[in-house]
């Protein structure tokens, strides 16, 4: 049964980059920073593409932001997504606002599945999927993972971690929870958020990037969605975390033991 899947592609600072807080705490220093698709969203796009390859259907990728976030939509299109939607928005967003926008897109597109990253690596809020599912009244599973490791044959042969039932009305999700893995069965339509171990996203190819240029990206103004957005999580001030002391080197294990057991009194 073909699936229509909506995925997200947030533009975030490169997670490998050094993030520095501005002296007045009003934001981070953005000069020289590079941007990329949120790694968790990239996993969501990959899983959506695998589902489409196995079952057929369509993958629609959405991003919310200024004109520059089209580049993250293009990455998902180059991976193989079919079309994009950019909701134009300048300024801060909080999870409730993002979920409200996505809800409008979901109502318009009516996908069978929404797959999104469990969190974005900038705000680290881990809320949008949950709020969206609750507002839609849909089945949901956060932190989607799989039993097989990322080194397994299942992964190397790009098998879906999310398993659609034969009749196409439900999907099984293995979740990473405290103390182990949990399996849930969701009646479609459903919202799923991805954890790190669901898959290894494909690398975009030159033909993929060429094709992506011709794929449609629709632009929508927030006003067109008929919603009024008011931020409810307001960042007032940023700080740098205090540095942890450390750096003491010991030469031998005996010396380590003398310090740890003898001086610090632990172990």
């Amino acid at each position: 049964m073909p699936l229509k899947i909506l995925v997200t592609s947030k533009r975030v600072e490169d997670p490998e980059a050094l993030i520095l807080v501005k002296a007045d705490g009003s934001g981070i220093e953005t000069q020289g920073l590079s941007y990329r698709i949120n790694p968790f969203d990239e996993i969501a796009v990959e899983e959506a593409l695998r589902l489409k390859e196995e079952h057929g259907g369509e993958v629609v990728v959405a991003s919310i932001g200024a004109a520059d976030c089209v580049s993250e939509i293009r990455v998902a299109l180059a991976m193989g997504a079919d079309r994009g939607i950019r909701v134009d928005h300048e300024g801060p967003l909080d999870p409730g606002m993002v979920a409200a926008i996505l809800q409008k897109l979901v109502e318009g597109e009516q996908p069978d599945l929404v797959i999104l990253g469990k969190q974005s690596v900038d705000d680290d809020q881990n809320q949008v999927g949950q709020i969206l599912a609750q507002r839609m009244g849909w089945a949901r599973a956060t932190f989607a993972s799989k039993e097989e490791s990322l080194e397994s044959t299942a992964e190397k042969t790009r098998q879906c971690g999310l398993r659609l039932a034969a009749d196409g009305t439900s999907i099984r999700v293995v979740r990473e929870v405290d103390g182990g893995l949990e399996t849930l069965e969701l009646s479609l339509p459903a919202v799923i958020t991805t954890d790190l171990r669901l898959n290894i996203p494909r690398i975009t190819s030159v033909p993929g990037i060429m094709k992506a240029r011709k794929k449609p990206v629709r632009e929508i103004q927030v006003e067109e969605l008929g919603i009024e957005l008011q931020p409810a999580v307001i960042v007032r001030k940023l700080h740098s975390p205090s540095k942890r002391g450390g750096g003491l080197r010991v030469k031998t294990v005996q010396e380590l033991w003398d310090k740890v057991h003898g001086e610090a009194g632990v172990l």
């Binding site: 680290d124 999580v233 007032r236 001030k237 700080h239 975390p241």
Partner: peptide, 20 residues
Amino acid sequence: VLVRRPMWAGNVLADVELRG
């Protein structure tokens, strides 16, 4: 009351106001 929480993988701490 503001809530202090980590962002950017703990590289930044934010004091946030919850309006609701």
